[in-house]
Amino acid sequence: MMKRFAWTTAESPSAAASAASTICAEAMALTDGATDGAIVMAGGIDLLDLMKEGLLAPARLIGLRDIADFGAIDLERDGARLGAGITLAALAADARIRRRYPALAAAAAGAASPQIRNVATLGGNLLQRPRCWYFRSRHHRCLRRGGVHCFAHDGDNRYHAIFDNRRCAIVHPSTLATVLVALGADVQLTDAAGGSRRLPLEVFLTPPAGDLTRENILQPREILHAVHLPPISEGIRMAHSKRGEKDAFDWPLAEVAVVLDLEPGGRCRDAAVILGAAAPAPHRAVNAARQLVGAVIDEKRATAAAAAAIEDATPLADNGHKLPLFEALVRRTIMAAAQGRLEDSILR
């Protein structure tokens, strides 16, 4: 049962930011996650989960649902602006998003379950805490919760990171982040004075080196307000694939988003290959992209890129299977993008 808290609502982004005296990550690094501060809540799927597990106990929650246009989708001349409060279901169903950013709509449509997608928001999806089962256990106060030990390293790490896993081996839980980073999205953060800063999502999802207690740089008195998507030019191709042990309603073992910019003749001008469920943040497979840029993409090229994507991996005792899985999925997702398919749907 959750600890008691007070409930209020905010009607503007700045009011919400001004009330948000703390953030989830800050509170969860304290014993039992108990804070006398206030935390903002949109859909609340992750926050309530953490609170029910006894990992987070804020004195106050501030509901964001009343904020006007927090759940809006605006198509701009040079891209799109997605309110952070849009539900995954709305994102998946939006005809304009499906047309211009089909991989994003598909990723939203494939996340969690219909019931969760009807409540969970874009912002909540990006800000949700990791699913590491030690992090999520009140009986294991791990490094990420202010403890001194990573239980995953010598425990069961079958679902954990294969990159950047030396100190803490979480994987970033957001499926949308994988696609959004591949698309080169920005986030818009709004503060208590109503001021905004805009920065690349990839930068937002890079906490200061050495700070293991958070997965982003959101500050107290600040809210994640919107996500901005860049425009889609003629040659852009995108695909997103994921595989879990189950086909639906399961966390992925491996997830890949590929965005290609192809010249009319098919030569690849630019490429982003992002791996999800691979590292504490969406993992940019730089070497894989390098294999693609300047080339006409074919099976051989995709195979080389796939091999490059995992060459620097440092698997743990129980997650070596992620390497062949990612290798296959990277290759297939590149080919899917190059061939204009939305995802690798082989045996899914």
């Binding site: 609340g44 309530l48 409540v119």
Partner: peptide, 23 residues
């Protein structure tokens, strides 16, 4: 999903919503 109800006609998990937040 055992707790599934509709909010404005859409299925949701009622265990993951606060009653005060339903509006």
């Amino acid at each position: 999903g055992a707790c599934t109800v509709w909010l404005d006609g859409s299925p949701v998990c009622s265990c993951m919503l606060l009653a005060v937040g339903v509006g």
